[in-house]
Write a protein that binds this DNA or RNA. Structure first.
Lengths: 240, 240
DNA sequence: ACAAAAGTGTTTTTTATACACCCATGC
DNA sequence: GCATGGGTGTATAAAAAACACTTTTGT
């Protein structure tokens, strides 16, 4: 951090944290993002990414978890920082002569387990899962942030095991395949090849338990074996 | 950005931008990072990443370019945002009862052409290229930021054409190979295979010009063809 | 002539891709 | 018994990896 020569006055900032929270509804094959309806200015009555301003003594990540906890109850999730948006004028509250404060947005990207994600309706403001392809015009620069987050999600899936943070403890290979298909689209791989590739990697262990889903042969339940995955850490591994 | 309920007071921030500026000295086979010696508190007389506080009306990226321009004259560079560090207490200036302001650091990652990078010695503060493996204990949390930047550099090299932003207009395939080796280490690939792979991709065009470097057969100068690269954009392409 | 650097080719192994086919269950 | 989803196998093509070899220069 530089020594402020300071005939140039420094900017004062408030720092917001905005979360791009994704979830995959494998039943209906939809990729969802959590939006909230703002009940205060600016952008009152606009859908937005859930966000908050950082409080005294609170770290960025803590703020990210706080919003999350305010909006949904969930046990299993993955969270990481996304990007920081700090263009001049990105927030209407920076307008000419208010307090002369800038508004920075540090965005976080999260993936949560759909099954146990329980939305907290605080009665006042709306909150809802939106299919990512049906998201309306959002307040602030949140469409941009969402797009960025969506990119990150796709990349993450391809080279890291985030999916297992969010799938149930045990799952069928078809569940896993559905998950990938829902996020990446149908064309990412043949099921049979996907299957072979993942099993060869050796960190999915067959529990032996079979589950029947209506007609058809029952499927094996698999489990993600973190210890067996360890050697694969940092190595590029491609699911595409 | 949330509606501040605010029995919890919001934090006030100053925002710093810190740059991890890399350069590759292909002659001596060294990966370098630019450090400056601080001449003011806190961390006076410590080496640090070049940084500055963001001024009024200045975007984050503009601030990043400003520091860069203050420290080195360079035409060819690549720059992108790295990560935002905002833990409580990461800057000594947050100490108990100063102005009760937090110091955020938005870090940027840059790669510059070594040949035409001219350090600007402003006489007061020291400034120097350090081999990344010989970096001392830095001020603030800058060692951490540097480590993070180094990771990013390695990844970038593997799947994006940043190297060509920073190599001379025309270069031999050996120059390119040296560049990669210097950053990624000796073990990343056989020269002959590296060569074949890159030429097959089809965005390196032979200028026909030959250069002799001492003994041995003269090498062809190649040129990076941006148009021919375009189709490869976004596709994962691996140089490893 | 010979070492040094550049560049080509060959062989082997691994991985990706596209399928065809067999298996176990519900109805 | 046959449709349905689960699971295995094979044949082909493409890529990665290892390494031997040729070509062109300076000395």
């Amino acid at each position: 951090m530089g020594s402020g020569k300071s005939q140039h006055p420094l900017a004062k900032f408030r720092v917001g944290v905005d979360n791009v929270i994704f979830s995959v509804d494998t039943e209906k094959n939809r990729l969802l993002v959590l939006l909230v309806l703002r009940d205060t200015e600016p952008y009152r009555d606009y859908w937005c990414l859930p966000g908050t301003l950082v409080r005294q003594g609170e770290s960025l990540e803590a703020a990210a978890y706080r919003i999350l906890a305010e909006k949904i109850r969930v046990q299993n999730l993955y969270l990481e920082q996304l990007y920081t948006f700090g263009d001049v004028g990105r927030d209407p509250r920076e307008a000419p002569d208010q307090y002369n404060e800038r508004y920075l947005s540090v965005s976080y990207f999260a993936l949560v387990r759909y099954a146990d994600a329980e939305l907290i309706a605080d009665g006042v403001s709306g909150i809802a899962w939106y299919p990512v392809h049906q998201v309306p015009t959002l307040g602030f620069d949140h469409n941009r942030i969402l797009t960025y987050g969506h990119h990150r999600l796709c990349n993450k899936l391809e080279y890291s095991p985030v999916a297992f943070d969010v799938l149930p403890e045990s799952f069928t290979l078809n569940d896993l395949y559905q998950f990938y298909t829902t996020v990446l689209g149908e064309h990412f791989s043949d099921y049979s090849n996907f299957r072979t590739r993942l099993l060869k990697l050796g960190f999915l262990s067959d529990t032996g338990i079979k589950v029947s889903r209506g007609a058809g042969r029952p499927a094996s339940l698999y489990r993600f074996d973190r210890d067996a995955f360890d050697p694969h850490k940092d190595k590029p591994m491609i699911f595409i």
